[in-house]
């Protein structure tokens, strides 16, 4: 199946750039004429992922594959890894430092929101090596 590949690099610890990649993907999906609900879900999930990459992951890379009926997003960082994925998935659980929380981020809703807005989510994480999350958003063309 033909798809549109997109690649982005996210720099770590730079909040001013967080959200750039999700914004670009969103605008591309709009130009392609995707269903606005699917665009919204993909953009929010990706934005949350980007913020995580900035806060915890020290930046990383994003690979997006846009298919006619679904959008695959892979977000890979070389950060500290997640110790307990089950715990990290709980709403409100956060390991974000105080300075990040002072900015209004790190409320412990990142991963739960990604789960909420995507149709499938898989997290691979290794302590000291990094975290890679794979997510898929299904598209229903109205």
């Amino acid at each position: 199946m033909s798809f549109l590949p997109l690649h982005f690099t996210v720099s770590g610890y730079d909040f001013t750039c967080a959200g750039e990649a999700s914004s670009k993907v969103k605008n591309k999906l709009k130009q392609l004429g995707y269903d606005s609900e699917a665009i919204r879900r993909a953009a929010i999930a990706m934005y949350e992922g980007e913020i995580n990459m900035v806060i915890h992951g020290g930046g990383g890379e994003i690979f997006v594959e846009v298919y006619p009926d679904h959008i695959d997003i892979k977000m890979a960082d070389k950060g500290p890894g997640i110790e307990n994925i089950e715990q990290a998935m709980q709403e409100g659980y956060s390991t974000a430092p105080a300075n990040v929380r002072a900015l209004g981020f790190g409320a412990g809703m990142g991963l739960p929101n990604i789960k909420k807005y995507t149709d499938s989510l898989r997290i691979e994480s290794e302590i000291g090596k990094g975290t890679t999350i794979y997510m898929t958003v299904q598209v229903n063309h109205s």
């Binding site: 033909s2 798809f3 549109l4 997109l6 591309k28 709009k30 130009q31 392609l32 004429g33 606005s36 846009v66 006619p68 063309h141």
Partner: peptide, 23 residues
């Protein structure tokens, strides 16, 4: 009502091909 004036094509496959070429 939304007016999709920025849309590349009404045909999704064609739009994707166009976007590939644009990129």
């Amino acid at each position: 009502e939304f007016a999709p004036v920025l849309k590349l094509s009404d045909n999704l496959e064609e739009a994707m091909d166009m976007m590939n070429r644009i990129d």
